[in-house]
Amino acid sequence: MSEANRAIDSTTTPVITDVRKIGDISQRPPRTLWGDARRRFLKHRLAVLGSLVIIFFTLAVLVGPSIYTVDREALNFDVPTMAGPTWEAPMGTDDLGRDILARALFGGRVTLAVGVTAMLIAILVGTIVGSISGFFGGYLDQLLMWITDTFLSMPTLPLFLLIVYLFRDTLTRALGPETGIFLLVVSVIGLLTWMPTARVVRASFQTLKHREFVEAATCLGVGPLAIMFRHILPNVMSPIIVAATLGVGTAIITESTLSFLGVGFPPDLPTWGRLVTDGQNFLELAPHMSLLPSLLIFLTVLSINFIGDGLRDALDPRSRL
């Protein structure tokens, strides 16, 4: 649209070529919001690199264990224990001779699943609180924002520790050690990290609810819920997508911190944070045991943050030309 205008405005060239130019432009497929966003995202080199790393890691943990078939629990005293990376064991072996790569591939599933699920919970709660607060305003808004601020002042890590530590045994007994702790960790992380999303969504709702398209929808007799979720929410998607991306990184760091402090998953579920903890005591003798899993966490979170950065630039309507 703007390019077409510019072409008409520039009257320095003869009129005939201008007409041809306009014709050319009209034949091109129209530019769309998502098409523009994709083009801008692909220009952000680090974000593309980050996406490739994340795709690689996801594939690796999903298909990896069926290709790399070394037993992750096999105690192997034939190979040197605590040996650094070799061709037989690309990430080395731990103090019991177990292959760290096999463990990391399997544990990575849990780490990535925790990140994504916890983010979904946080985004869901944040979006609901933020949209209600921003759309309805008044006392409801004040109450919800007070709750948000209170949650923001909560000492999160001590609370994580407390809740996970206190409820771990009951949930393990009720749902089994894996599902029980997964649900516990994911919901605790989700319920203690939704606040930034709620604030962003609220701010966007506040500016958008006075726009003409909302007025038009109201005049057509659209109900408040439909206006909120069918008309306003799609326009708030870009900040939500950015918050969601960054949320995965935060959740992964939080899970590995919990595992590091010894309140995460049980030892037979070697998440990356757990592997770091297991290797921590052998830092002097076998630094690869804790540093390589740390590197995996770091690379994942770094890539996610680059993707988030790229998406922010790509989805920002102000940079759309």
């Binding site: 770091v276 804790s290 740390s294 966490i297 770091f298 979170v301 770094l302």
Partner: peptide, 17 residues
């Protein structure tokens, strides 16, 4: 970006090492 993506225990282990 690196500093903000690295978990604090990883910084700690690296610093110790």
């Amino acid at each position: 970006f690196v500093g903000f993506s690295i978990p604090s225990f990883a910084i700690g282990l690296l610093v110790i090492l």
